[in-house]
Amino acid sequence: MIREPILNAVIMAALLAVPLWALWAGEPFTITLATRAAILALAAVGLNIALGLGGLVSLGHAAFFGIGGYAMGILAHHAQTYTPLMEAPFLIEGTKSMPVIWLTAIVAASLAALLIGALSLRTTGVYFIMITLAFGQMLYYFAISWPTYGGEDGLSIYVRNDFPGLNTLRPFPFFAISYVALAVGLFLSWRIAKSPFGLALSAARQNEARVRTVGMDPYRLRLTAFVISGAITGLAGALFADLNRFVSPTMFSWQMSGEFIVFIILGGTARLFGPVVGACLFVILEHWLGGLSDYWLVFLGAILLLVVLFARGGVIGALAGREATHD
C-alpha cells in the first residue's frame, strides 16, 4: 500500500514526464494524448466537486463542457470571420485570446449551472439524475437545431487561439497550459474539500437532517457546489475545443456526461486524484484497445462493469487502500 499523497505526487509527475519524454523523443501525438487526458481530467475534477463532495450524481455535466466549448467556438468564429458578435446595444467582437475565452466560458457555464442547479436541486436521488440528464439533452438538441453556429456539423476553428508569450500551435506549450489548468483545478478542489464550506457540503451529503439542525441550508450549499463544479467543467470544455480546434453538439452528448462519471469511478470515488487517474486510464485504453479492435467500447464496458461490481475503490482504492473518512 502506498500513501495517497505520495501516490498523487507520482501521478502528477507521470502526467508531466510522459509529454516531456515525447517532446525529447519527437512524438507529438503522445503529447496530444496527454493533453487530452489532462483536459478530460479537469472536466471530471469539476464534476467531482458536485459528485464526490456533494453526492450530487449529475448526468448532465456535458452541458457545461459544451457551453465552454461553444464559448470558445463562437468567439473564435467571429474573430476568424471578422464579424461582430453583436452590434446593438453595444459592440461585442470575437476574440482569439485564450484568457478572455476562458473567462467567458467560466461565466457562461456558471450561469447555466446556476439555472440548471436551481431547478434540479429541488429534487434528490433518481429524479436529480434524470433531470440533469434531460437538461443536458435539451442543450444538445438546441445546439443541433441552431444553424447559426454550424448546427449538427459544428464549428471549425482554423488556428488555435493565442496565449500571451506562448506558441500554442506547438503541442507542448498547449499541453503545459492544460496541465497548469488541471493543477489549478485540483488545488481548488483540494482547498474546497478542506474549507468550512466543503466540510458543510460533505456533511449535507452524509446527514442532511443534522446540517439543517445546525442552521445551514443544504440547498444553498449544493447549489454553490454545483455552480463551482459547472464552471470548472466549462473551462475544460473551452480547452477541449481548442485542442481539437473544433466544436460540435457531441460535446453536449449524454455519453460525454457518462464518461466523466466513468473517469471518477475508474480512478476511485471521492478521491482528489480519482478523476485524473480515470481520465488517463480512459485515454490509454481508448488508444490501446481502439487500436486492437473497432469495438473497443465492449471491453471498456466489461472493465467498467467489473470495477463497479467488484472493485469499488477504483484504481486509487486498489493502490492506496481504504480512505480514513467515515461515510
Binding site: G125, G258, V298, L300, L304, L305, V308, R312
Partner: peptide, 22 residues
C-alpha cells in the same frame, strides 16, 4: 446507491451497443 446503478447500466449500454454493432 444510484451512482453504482448508473455506472453499471451505462457499462451495459456500451456492451449492448457495440455488441450489436459487432
Amino acid at each position: 446507491d444510484h451512482l453504482d446503478q448508473v455506472l453499471a447500466t451505462f457499462a451495459l449500454i456500451l456492451i449492448f451497443s457495440e455488441g450489436t454493432r459487432w
